[in-house]
Every structure is written in C-alpha cells, then in structure tokens.
Design a protein around this nucleic acid. Structure first.
Lengths: 341, 341
DNA sequence: CTGTTAGCGCATTCAT
DNA sequence: ATGAATGCGCTAACAG
C-alpha cells in the first residue's frame, strides 16, 4: 500500500496542504469548485486521512475503551455482553466512534490495560460493563478524573458516577411479587457472584417483596453460585433437603436458570409443575428453552445504547441531564411459573 | 489531567528528549545511572508516553481490528464469540496488542468500519471471526493486500488466506459416525445459516459418514435455520411428518440444539430416549443443560489464541509456517445419544 | 553514552 | 477563499 498524504493531493491539485485539510473537514469557506477538484484528486490517488495523525493533533481518538469483567470465570460466556456490545456499537457507528475492547484475564491484567489506554491517551473515555464491590478500576478512573460510565449501579458514589442501570431492586421485587400473587410462599433465591452489585440489588428486591407479603426471609433459602456445576449442585441439594422445600425460585440470571432447571430435574422436580422459576435478563434463548422462562426483560441492547450516548456526551463536553439513567424493565410472562387457578 | 511530555522530563533531568525516549525503550546504550534519574523524574511528574504520538512515528498501532459478523441476527448472542475474544485477548495482552472491535449492524456498516480502520491505518491487521460465501470484506482485504487472518475456512483461495479452523468436515463425519456406530440410521441434519462455511463443512462430513455406511442421503432430512423459533418450528414439523421419522439428529451448533431439543419435546419426542442428538462447539452450558449434550469440542479459546498468534506474526514480519492452522477437535461424550446396548 | 535534527501526517492559527 | 508556518508528542538517523 503506497502512502498518499495530504501533501500529495496538494501537489497534484496545486493547492496548499491546508486547503486540502479544509476540504476534508468540509470547511464552508472553501469554494465548491476547489472542493470538487480536490476530491477528484483524492479519489484518483486513493487518499484516505491517517487517523493516528489526526488524533495526535486534535488530542482525541474518538475511541472508547469498553471493559468486560476479567474473564477467568465462565460468566463471560453470558450473551449479555455481546448484546450490550451490539447496543454500544450501533450508536458508536453513527457517531464514528470505535470500541477498544479490554481483554485482560485477571484483575491485574485488566487494570494494566486500562492504565495503558487511559494514561497513553489512547481512548477518550471508558465504559465499564460491570459493577462490583471495591473495584480498583473505579478508584483509578475517579482519581484521574477520567470520563467513564458504568453499566450497572456503582457500589458507592451513586451521585457522582454516571451509570446506566435498571432498577434492579424493583425488578427483583416485581418478579417476586408475581410469584407471591400466584400463590407461592416458599420462595428461594439463587444468585450469581455475591460481590456483583446487580446480584445484591435483585436479592434486595426479592427480600422486600417477601417482607411486604409477611413471608419470613430464610437464610437457608439463599444461594450464591457463579457457575452451576459442582458447587451449585450441593447448594441446590441443600435447599431441597430442607424441611420446607421451596415451591418457587428466583434466579438472578437466565444463564444460571438453565443450570438450575436441569439440576432441579435431576432431583425429580419439574418446572413449573413442581416448582416455579423466574429469572432476569431475557436473553434470547430464554424463549426457546423448555419451559420458556418467565423473566425480567432488562433491555440489554438499550443499556448499551444509552451508555454509548452518555459517554459520547461526556467526551464532547455536552451537559448530561442526569447521572443515573434507568432503563425500564418489564416482565416477559412465559411458562416457568405455575399459576394460581 | 496535566499533560506531561518527554520534553518536560528532559528539562527537569537536564537530558535531551532523545535520551528520555531511549530510557522508555530501555535502550542498552544508556547508563543505568541516567536511566534511574530519568525514571525517577517520570514517576515524579507522572509521565506516561502518548501512544498516538508514538504510533504516528513508528507507523504501527499494535492494534488489531476484530470483526464480528454483522449483528442484525441473533446468532451474535452465541457464546462462541466471547470465547474467541477471550482467547485473542489473552495472547494480545502478553504482546501488548489491543483489540478494536467492529460494531456494524448491517453488512454495509461493517464494511464502512473496516474501510475506516484499514485505510485510516488505525489497525495493523484484521481478524475475521466468521467465514461466509462471497464476502466483500475478504475481497477488499485481499485487494489492499492487508494482513488478515480468518477464524474458519475461507470460501475460496484456501491456499492464499491465512486461517485458523477446525477440520469441520472430519468433525461432522466423526460425530455422525458415532451415531451410526450406536445403531442409528435415520439421521437428520439441522444446520445454521446456509451460507456459513462452517455449516457447509459440517454437513459435508455428515454426508460422508452416511455414504460410507451406505445410508442414503435424504434431502428432506436436512434443514437450515438460523434461529429456532417460528421458521424452525415448521421445519422440524416437516421432518417429523415424514414417513421415516429420524432416530437421530446432527445439529451444527450447541445453541441451536437448545432450541431443537425443546421443539422436539413439544412434538412429544424425548432426547435421547426417542431421538438422539449431537452437536458442535461445546459451549459451557452444553454441559449443564438436560440432557447434557454430546458435542464436538472445537476448542474455541484455542481458535482465538492461534488466530492472535498468526496475525501478530504477520504484522511483525515473521514467517508463518503455514497458511492453514488446524485446531484439533474431540468429542465430549455425554447424555444426548441413545447408545446401542 | 548522549545531543541535534528532522519528520511522521495532520489541523490550525495567522496572514493575505 | 487560500497559503505559510507551526506544532501535536514522539522516534530515529546521524553525529560526536
């Protein structure tokens, strides 16, 4: 690939480099005629602006670092992430922004990468695709006063950190109430990683609903498990071994539900006949599995779009109307709940 | 964030900018003493090299564009992608490379984005995470003679295009043969999008196995469906309506299997009692669903790692030993096949 | 071992 | 409406 620069176009057309530059920017003070001439030459020679050079002078890259949780665990296979990514990408595309994806396996690696991006001025902003307790990344970003938005609720500084979230407490309460309304009273909660804010919030909602219905909250009814295989098995075993077996279960993530359902079946319990199940996210196969899941649709794609909007606003010095952007949820009613007749 | 440059460090330490630059590069011709002094100053002032500036002069970004299929369809929610991404990321991290993720929704958008990356010299190379027939992106990359590697088998120019793939024909044959060995003879094939090379290859293997066992290949036994909902339903209905109902089915992707299983159950067929099922990929929940899937483990993570290795080799002018890199597959034997007694 | 000089490709003052 | 000059922050010849 031959390198053709602004100077080459200038030489060929007889204009100066600055004029060519102005044509690229479509500056209004350039006559249509020269614009045409210059553009013709650009086509002719196959010119394309060098983004790195441009970025250097404008001191901005129009690139946003998008950070996934460190990927040692399998939770990364959650379709949630590709779906937010899709949302982010769709908005970025119209605004000509790019996604620089973090790829760190460990917390340490992830941190190093973010440091590189930020201190190396390789990105204009950061989107964090998770929120967990005591996250050093957040501390770093805050200290550097670097533009970032978080998908999910911050564990602290809720009024400071721009974030795009669902009302997960309410979602947890809504879906649990739905269970209660249908006659369930012995309701268990199975959550993902316990230090994820989203897990905590959904559990909180679950507990609120119970309290409101005067149902006692039993510690033994709550499990946390990232991954439904060996560890999860024992946990489910434990719950089912209780004197008062639950008649319903709230699961904090559709992906975990898949595991829970098959595990329950191993213990001879069919969903929803023997035990009802509800969960969260509404990833696409929650509709195609058997039974189709009654789940909270949190509009993952929208979560992505809005976080993209927010970070671009921040990077272009526009005013943000609010720090906390809530994406509404709604329940997708399907077949995993045994309804009251 | 105050901007501190190489010049500032130079001024403070009394050395020249080039010396400072050499310290950053850890040049061997700089005395340990000055290195220490310079580094101290860098710490002091909080210096960090500006990557954009560096990239401009070295004419390289150490950034690779990673291209997902255009994401209009739901197939993007396939955990396959995050898993390759993990593999790529893990290798990139050690080599200090970054991932620039494509985010186009339509083919058109995707193409524009790649054009920007490539012509704008914003990336050193490209990894394509899919392979389909008549892909204009591939034509573009070839024409520009731009370094790229493909995950999957190219639809043409197999000897030209560097690609990391499984032997999907053999995989298809192996898994189908396994079915045959266990007494199945009426075997159906359910594939994803028909223009995906991976689908084509796996189907080819399926047909080879049948032929070798002298089992006639029936056109009516083959379905293509990207998404197992409305369209897929009719297709399955059709197959089950045949006089000779299949006693086994080869599904080209674990994710589709989830849909197939539930759809079969709707028609009263239980896996594996009434009908056996095998598929491909071994994404993590193929192990936790009920029944656990007998599936070809294609080592997605490795696919990512090797494609990362290959593209970095190409970008650093190292010799590639071969154009075609095959990741071995093996069958994960589980519970979705009814075994011959 | 270190300094001087030049230039990567572009946008942007300040002129005219 | 256009051109000349400058510099973004860095690396890399070349010189010593």
């Amino acid at each position: 690939m031959e390198i053709v620069t602004i100077k080459d176009i200038a030489k060929v057309t007889g204009f100066s480099p600055s004029t060519v530059s102005r044509v690229i920017a479509n500056n209004s003070r350039i006559s249509e005629e020269t614009k045409n001439k210059v553009r013709a030459a650009m086509d002719e020679l196959g010119y394309h602006p060098n983004l790195t050079a441009r970025n250097l002078v404008i001191q901005s890259t129009k690139t946003i670092g998008v950070i996934m949780p460190s990927s040692a665990d399998k939770s990364l296979q959650n379709p949630f992430f590709t779906e937010v990514l899709r949302g982010i990408g769709s908005y970025f595309h119209q605004k000509q922004f790019s996604i620089l994806l973090s790829s760190g396996q460990t917390e340490q690696e992830k941190f190093e990468e973010i440091e590189r991006m930020v201190l190396g001025k390789y990105v204009d902003g950061i989107i964090l695709l998770y929120s967990r307790l005591n996250d050093s990344v957040v501390d770093f970003l805050k200290e550097k006063n670097f533009p970032f938005v978080m998908v999910g609720k911050p564990s602290g500084d809720k009024d400071e950190i721009v974030h795009v979230d669902n009302d997960n407490v309410k979602a947890g309460k809504d879906i649990t109430t739905y269970l209660i309304e249908n006659g369930h009273r012995r309701i268990s909660f199975i959550g993902g990683a316990a230090d994820l804010v989203v897990t905590i919030d959904r559990q909180k909602g679950y507990e609120m609903a119970l309290k409101e219905a005067d149902i006692p909250i039993l510690k033994e009814y709550t499990i946390h498990t990232e991954f439904l295989k060996s560890g999860g098995r024992q946990a489910v075993e434990q719950i089912l071994g209780l004197e008062l077996k639950p008649d319903a279960v709230v699961v904090s993530d559709d992906l975990i539900s898949v595991g829970v359902i098959s595990m329950l079946e191993e213990y001879g319990l069919k969903v929803p006949e023997d035990i009802s199940l509800v969960s969260f996210n509404n990833i696409y196969f929650s509709e195609i599995i058997k039974p189709a899941l009654t789940t909270v649709d949190i509009q993952i794609y929208e979560l992505g779009v809005e976080s993209a909007k927010a970070i671009i606003q921040m990077c272009t010095n526009q005013k943000l109307s609010k720090k906390r952007i809530i994406i509404p949820h709604h329940i997708a009613y399907r077949d995993s709940v045994c309804l009251k007749k």
